[in-house]
Design a protein around this nucleic acid. Structure first.
Length: 467
DNA sequence: TGAAATGTTGGGGCG
DNA sequence: ACGCCCCAACATTTC
């Protein structure tokens, strides 16, 4: 209800028919299983809050004009999405509504700045984060809107029942217990934000890289589903800093993470092939392995590297993975296993509650080294060192890989290096209770670097914008 | 928003 | 006392 410009505009015009449509015309990037779980609960919360919400499934190009006619609507309002499919779709919808004599208006609710509003001095899109964020931060963003002062809602006939959509998993219910971890919906988003601000923000800069501490915001699914807006966050935090200067560095650091989200949307808007193609075309020459068995081991969290396995299991069991671990696990797939980043992107798309086309694509291309402002290819994480550095007591590993929990802090990051008696004492049998490493770190690193030599610098060209 | 390899320096053991 | 070597510790470079 808060900072929802489409809803505010609609409410000012008279009675409102709130509608949600599952767009079945996007066959390429249909929501994954975890996303559908969130969607179910988010829709239930929204309907509860609004008092009405009509649900439809199909092609919105067809459905929206029908719904507008059936309800006698004179105008249709929505908040914009920025995926290439959504942009093309919404253009069609606007034309179809116009033909019907129905007004159509779209709004920005999801971003601080429209992707086309930030540009370099020469008018081109930014390709590097730091100057992008400097330019974006220098611009004022719109103030968040309060909820509509009064709203008269009603349903339209012919809508579906949420339960009939069967968005929740069963047989097996792999999401059992998720409702104790996550609270989809606006109230859940605001609670999460308040709790983050109250207890985690002041030390955010120091603690954000520590998956064992859980001091990150975990707002990403709420942001993706529009349950809280970056403008609400920015405005609230700017005010909070004035009252408490001690949180300034934490606020700046957190806002720059919001900035990465903005930057990803900026890139996706200007480079619509970002989810599907190497941004640096030179990477088309990289000799990816098929590695079906290794991909499966990675997905299931049995690579033999505990920090990676802990992350992949956290993802599978909770629909979420800590950011630092995402980087290490993704790097492991791309560099240690030399599997195409798009396989990892697909897995994250299916399993993450915060699956977001822009963030997911930009993140994977960053890790792979094929993206804009990407991590250099030769920056290869050592999963053992990363674990020792960011999970120093092994708590994160013990939580998700309980079969290792009796190992000492010294051994838990690399059980394959532990002495036989230490393993025996901890009840670990390598290859049985916990896998041996599926690749040797040094050899994998050398092979990854050898593969990178086939990526031709001369071919490193961003695609032309706007295609 | 790395890690490994290589280079440099300086203290201390030792003949 | 001196030079030599060893090798941490730190810095630089390379991938």
């Amino acid at each position: 209800m808060r900072d929802n410009p489409a809803l505010v505009a609609a409410a000012e015009r008279g009675p409102v028919v709130p509608v949600f449509i599952i767009d079945t015309s996007d066959t390429n990037w249909a929501p994954g299983g975890a996303s559908l779980w969130w969607l179910h609960h988010s829709l239930a919360a929204l309907r509860n809050r609004l008092g009405a919400l009509s649900l439809f499934k199909g092609d919105p190009r067809v459905l929206l004009p029908q719904i507008a006619r059936a309800s006698g609507a004179t105008s249709v309002h929505w908040n914009r999405c920025y995926e290439p499919h959504a942009i093309a779709r919404d253009t069609d919808i606007k034309a179809a509504l116009k033909e019907l004599g129905v007004e159509a208006q779209s709004f920005n609710a999801a971003l601080l700045h429209e992707p086309w509003q930030i540009a370099t001095g020469s008018g081109s899109p930014f390709k590097v984060f730091t100057p992008y964020w400097r330019a974006a931060s220098a611009k004022d963003s719109a103030a968040p809107l309060p909820p509509p002062s009064s709203i008269d809602v009603r349903d339209v006939a012919g809508g579906d029942r949420l339960d009939d959509w069967r968005l929740l998993p069963r047989n097996p219910d792999w999401a059992a217990g998720w409702d104790r971890i996550w609270t989809p919906g606006e109230e859940g988003a605001l609670d999460r934000f308040e709790s983050f601000v109250a207890s985690d923000l002041v030390r955010y800069g120091e603690d954000r890289d520590r998956p064992d501490l859980q001091h990150t915001s975990r707002l990403s699914p709420h942001l993706h589903w529009g349950e809280i807006s970056p403008r609400q966050i920015a405005t609230h935090l700017a005010l909070a800093v004035e009252g408490n200067p001690a949180i300034r560095s934490g606020v700046d650091k957190f806002m720059s993470e919001i900035g990465w989200r903005e930057f990803a949307h900026h890139l996706l808007y200007h480079y619509p092939s970002l989810p599907d193609r190497n941004w640096r075309a030179g990477f088309d020459a990289y000799p990816w392995r098929d590695g079906a068995a290794d991909l499966e081991a990675w997905q299931q969290g049995r690579t033999g590297y505990p920090f990676v396995d802990a992350g992949m299991r956290e993802l599978w069991q909770t629909g979420f993975m800590h950011n630092r671990v995402r980087m290490v696990a993704a790097s492991f797939l791309v560099k240690h296993l030399r599997i195409d980043w798009r396989r990892g992107e697909q897995w994250f798309w299916d399993t993450l509650l915060d699956a977001d086309l822009a963030n997911n694509a930009a993140g994977w291309q960053w890790v792979a080294g094929s993206g804009a402002d990407a991590s250099p290819y030769f920056r290869i994480f050592n999963p053992v060192l990363q674990g020792e550095k960011f999970d120093p007591d092994g708590d994160y590993i013990r939580r998700w890989c309980p079969e290792l929990k009796e190992l000492s802090n010294a051994d838990i990051h690399a059980p394959f290096k532990a002495k036989a008696e230490a393993l025996a004492r901890a009840g670990v049998v390598l290859g049985k209770t916990y896998p041996r490493p599926i690749v040797d770190h040094d050899a994998a690193r050398q092979a990854a670097l050898a593969g990178y030599r086939q990526v031709k610098d001369g071919a490193v060209q961003p695609p032309p914008a706007g295609l």
